[in-house]
Write a protein that binds this DNA or RNA. Structure first.
Length: 270
DNA sequence: AAGGTAACCTGCGTGC
DNA sequence: TGCACGCAGGTTACCT
């Protein structure tokens, strides 16, 4: 479910319910997700006031005066604000009770997500090596061109490297490369500056558009309505292996690149 | 340093 | 209907 647009949509949906609220209690139904949940979470969160809900890359941060709870949704994670008496399902791993009477619930069947703690004034090690945010000005074609020199890895792999730019997952990498007309297997070091400018623009356009759409579909975080799929109608290549290119009618090609399913148009993308 | 691979885990769709 | 298999929107760890 979550690439950057989904996480940003989640952040925007949660913020009105969390900002300014105090944590009434924390329920951990298992000691770990991807990693052990540090004792600092249970030690600092109860009683703390949530001052802001931020996003960095695909991480969400709940800021308090003592530090920030750091959440990642992994592949299957979901955060919802629910009434306190909502029945608990098998993958409802964490509840954060709020002084509003409601509940912030973290659900994650595959448990690739995490709940960690970042002390005040520190940057968690997982956040230290991240590249720029794709929607900020520091991310542009010149930046991609500079970082890619000498790189032999496929440009799709390069684009999905969170140390290069954050937030671009398998769906949006495929879609951005299609829009920019770049073949995903092309070595990153052999893409021109001009074409990287097109790629950076495509990434920004695709992500901003997906955020706008997610904002309309996932507006109500008080109900269980976390259904994704909002972007499906507008996908040009992702998940369309074997079908025809919407632009030119050529049969789309399909291959694993860096162990991730990849689809592209051999005519539109060079 | 960069690049490739395995690993973490559950659910779902497909084909026999 | 049952079962085995492959695959899924992410990321780190480890090895060359």
């Amino acid at each position: 479910m979550p690439e950057l647009p989904e996480v940003e949509t989640t952040r925007a949906g949660l913020a009105p319910h969390l900002t300014g609220r105090r944590v009434a209690g924390v329920t951990l139904r298992r000691p770990d997700l991807r990693w052990p949940i540090p004792a600092a979470v249970a030690a600092h969160l109860p009683g703390a006031r949530i001052d802001a809900v931020r996003r960095r890359a695909k991480y969400l941060l709940l800021d308090t005066e003592a530090g920030s709870a750091l959440l990642h949704l992994g592949m299957s994670g979901m955060l919802r604000v629910l009434p306190p008496d909502t029945p608990v399902g098998p993958h409802d791993h964490v509840d954060i009770a709020l002084d509003s009477g409601r509940l912030l619930r973290f659900t994650d069947p595959r448990r690739f997500g995490c709940l960690l703690w970042q002390p005040i004034g520190e940057v968690h090690p997982l956040l230290r090596r991240l590249g720029p945010e794709p929607l900020e000005a520091a991310f542009d074609g010149d930046y991609l061109f500079a970082r890619s020199r000498g790189r032999a890895a496929p440009v799709k792999t390069f684009l999905m490297d969170q140390a290069i730019v954050v937030g671009v997952g398998n769906i949006y990498a495929a879609e951005s490369l299609f829009r920019a007309g770049i073949a995903p297997l092309r070595p990153a070091g052999r893409v021109s500056r001009e074409r990287y400018r097109a790629l950076a623009g495509a990434v920004k356009t695709v992500l901003a558009h997906a955020i706008a759409r997610g904002g309309t579909t996932l507006r109500d975080f008080l109900n269980a309505d976390g259904a994704p799929g909002y972007f499906e109608q507008e996908l040009f290549v992702y998940g369309r292996g074997g079908q025809r290119c919407k632009a030119c009618g050529t049969a789309l090609r399909e291959a694993a690149i860096g162990q991730r399913a990849s689809v592209w148009c051999p005519r539109c993308q060079r």
